[in-house]
Amino acid sequence: MPTQQLPRLNKQSRAEQIMKENKNSHTNQSKSPIQCACPIVRAEDFTFYYGAKAGVENITMDVTPCSVTAIIGPSGCGKSTFLRSINRMNDLIPNVRATGKLAVDGQDVYDKRVNLVNLRQQVGMVFQKPNPFPKSIFDNAAYGPRLQGIRKRGALDEIVEQSLTAAVLWDEVKDDLKKSALALSGGQQQRLCIARALATRPRVLLMDEPCSALDPLATGKIEDLIAQLKSKYTIVIVTHNMQQAARVSEMTAFFCLGELIEYDVTSKIFENPSNKKTEDYITGRFG
């Protein structure tokens, strides 16, 4: 494994990055099925501790750019912990610590020098429960851009429209952007949250069970949306719903008791899992 460089995430151009990754990848291409050519998220022996207890242990996996990666597993297996480690949302909890390596776009996110603001703008997140701010729809979508220092009304309008369109919400709300986001339905709120995350133009979108609080119809819409988004964004989705994982994802990782049991192409995981535990879980014999 070559030494990882630590470029400032925003500063280096994407092209350079990919070239470098490609060069590096020659050496370790065939090392493991869970390591890909030019991963956008790469975990290597990543262990995350809550106090003395490990939330996830020795995770090694790569996430392919512009794809949907699903993480499945029983409750408490560390799916969310791993997901929230990627944009360091776990930092909010006191007494946590991480070992090993977790890199986004080649940048180790647990490096002391990492700029959290930049990291989180690169790695957007959608939460389990729709959590729009108690502000207007426009203010919700414009929250991220405003953080980036965009103040001009015209520029904000454009970004808001783009991200709401990308989240397939624009047509429903374009006439009342001034309305409070809390007046929207649950599904609309969740799509607004996705739009809000997209407005910062992230590379990776983390979704923590985004449909668990929604009805099937709204879930369907979100899934359609995910399918549309994966052409531009890398999506990592944690889900309890195995059908959902099968429907939306290209790759699937199965976590159990804080360990990555199996990580492979989705069809293989669901049709021909190589691990007994995975098979048991998928067929519903445990978990």
Partner: peptide
């Protein structure tokens, strides 16, 4: 969740 959402946006 409000705080998380805001922090997650950077």
């Amino acid at each position: 969740t409000y705080k998380e959402a805001s922090l997650a946006l950077g």
